[in-house]
Each structure stands twice: as structure tokens, then as C-alpha cells.
Simulated assay, not measured.
Amino acid sequence: MDLGVVAGEASGDLLGAHFIAALKQRHPGLRAAGIAGPRMVEAGVEAVYPSDKLAVNGYVEVLRHLPELLWIRSRITRYFLRERPRVFVGIDAPDFNFTLEAKLKQAGIPTVHFVSPSIWAWRPERIHRIRQAVSHMLVVFPFEAQIYRDAGIPVTYVGHPLADVIPLQPDTAAARMTLGLAAGPVIALLPGSRLSEVTRHARLMLDAAVRIRQRHPDAQFVLPAANAAAARLVRQAMQGLDLPLRVLDGQSHTALAACDVALVASGTATLEAALFKKPMVITYRVPALTAYLMRKKALLPWIGLPNILARDFVVPERVQEAATPENLANDALAWLDDAPRREAVIETFRAMHLSLRQDASARIAKALEPYLERA
């Protein structure tokens, strides 16, 4: 095997698919296998297990799925130790991947980790574990590289693959035509890709949408569902509501291109919204125990990637108790009613986009080249 890989969820699957495609151009016969989602499978990765098996987050949720996660990690570890890939790439999923990477590295298999965990936001002590597990770290944000240099860990800043594929100037009119949307404000609702996130955020966002429509009767709403199960949860949450809502089969980028404002669950989707230059309201809810434990370890006042990159609250964040339909609706309406503020944040996001646009897939492929050339 040339390349072993583990991607933990939909965002990791998307990130992995881009650099796998770039590697295939350089190495058409490349054999890659591991834990992968549909996009990576389409790019040519053999899926030993599907990546959605790892799509759990938070202390409480992980504990609930722990036996299955430990079983999968044990099996995939034995698989890679038997197949001995030239290099292993762990994509995100740090709690799963670092233990796996440490065992592979100890067995002489080089380990590359793509997408640093947010040690700059919370749990900075993880740098010691990373040093034991990772041969080379690939980071997507420019400020992360110095953290790893200071820790003596080989590191390459590659930029963010999404910044390469999302256009600098999104075509809003074309996206609205594709979705068959009429004139009037368009609000995108992105409750998250995990089913647990959809369960926590869908009704919250739908109730906010009802309040937005009271002020803007011509408002339309689009909600890209990550999969069929997520779409079912959304339709259940819609019961009893009268809303002009389009539940889309995926198409998150089309939804973001089409919208005026987005309500977004914290995660990679907030960065995607910023790259599409869309004013947004970031929200998130987790079980109370998870929130308590995470707050005790937090190092930054922000949770959303656009705010972290800007080092400022350029968009509002509504988390836990503040995540109410009233707050989300009021924040969205404030964006719709303030054109100069919208233009200012669009310029902030354009500068952010340029700083992250580094041809990441080519940089990743170049960083992996020395390992793939090993005898």
C-alpha cells in the first residue's frame, strides 16, 4: 500500500478527496485505503470502514460510542501494521488518529497529520501527545506553523483546500437560478453534518426562520442536508411550521452562494460561509456537561473560525443558553438591515480568502512526495 488514510467525518472526507486527486495526478497507480467517506472513495480510496462511523463529538457523545470506536481503531491499526503503507495520513479526528498514529510511528511507518487540532483554542497540552504521534504536521491556518516549530515538530503550512475550490467572487444569481429561488431575501440554514448536531440545531434554526419571516414575508430559506438521515430529522423538526423552506440533498456550496445571510453551526461550515463572503450568525449547542468541561479548558473568547482568524467578533456567536430563536433571528435581521456592515464583513472575508488560497492540494502532495518515494 502507498497511502493509509483515516478521515473522521464529512469535512475530513472533503479535505481528503482534494489532495488524493492531486496525488493521483502525480502517481496514477497510487493505492490508498483506510477509513474514508464517499468523496474519498470517488477519488480512489478503498474504504475499509466508512468515515461516518467516527462522526461523534463531545465528551458525552464519545462515551456513548466508545466501545465501537475502540473496536474500529483496534481493527484498523492491525490492518495498517499488516499492510505497512509508505506513509499514513490522519485527516482531522485527532482523538482517534493520534493514538493510531503513535502506534504506526513506533512501528516505523511515517505519520502525517492534516489539519491541526485547535490547540491554540483549548487543551494546549496536547502538543506533547502530538510530538509522540506525528512525523509531520500539515496546517491550514498561517498562525499555526510557528506553534509546531516552537515544539520541534516538522510542519508545513499548506493553506486551506476549500479556499482553492470556492471562487473569490461567488455567483449568487446563478446559484439562485439553480435552486429556483424567487426574488427576496435568502437565508441559508446549516445545522451541522452530524445527526446529533442536526437534532440540536434544526428546530432552533427553523424557529428563528419563522421570526425572520415575520419581518420579511418574502424571505426564503434553504437547508442543505448532509445525507438522507439528516433530511429526515429536518422534516420531523418542520412539523407544525409554515415555512418556504427548501431541504436540499447536499449542495451546501450552492446554498451558501445563493444566500444573503447564513445561520451556521460552528465548524468547517463557518469557514465555508466566510469564503463565500456571507454575513452569518454562528451558533452551537452541546449537552450541559460537555459545555461545562469545554469552557473550563477554553483559551479564546471565540468558537467560530472566521472570528478566530480575524481575532475579533466580526460575526455574532450564539452558544448554549444564548442560542435562542429570538437571538438568531435578531442577529440575522440586523445583517439584512445594515448594508454598510454587510459590505465591511465581505471585505474582511475576501482578505481572509486570499490568505488561505495557497493551492493546498499541490502543497500536500509535495509534502507527501518524499515518503511515497521511499523504497
Rank of each mutant, 00 (worst) to 15 (best):
E9P: 03
A10F: 06
L15Q: 13
A17G: 04
H18T: 14
K24S: 13
P28R: 08
G29C: 02
G29S: 14
G34V: 12
R39F: 08
M40K: 03
V41H: 04
G44S: 06
E46S: 07
W71V: 01
R82G: 02
R84W: 07
I91N: 03
P94K: 03
D95A: 08
T99D: 10
K103C: 00
I109Q: 02
A121R: 05
M137F: 08
V140K: 13
P142E: 04
E144C: 04
T156R: 01
V165T: 15
P170Q: 12
A175P: 01
L179D: 13
I187E: 03
I187G: 03
L195V: 06
M205W: 13
R211G: 03
R211E: 04
Q214P: 01
Q214A: 14
V222E: 00
V222C: 03
N227E: 13
N227M: 02
L233H: 15
M238H: 15
M238Y: 10
L245D: 09
G250D: 11
T254P: 00
T270S: 08
V281A: 11
R285V: 09
V286C: 07
Y292A: 10
L293I: 15
L293P: 08
M294H: 07
R295G: 14
L300F: 14
P306L: 00
A310R: 09
A310L: 07
R311F: 01
R318F: 15
L328T: 02
D337H: 12
R341C: 13
I346V: 10
F349C: 00
R350H: 11
M352K: 07
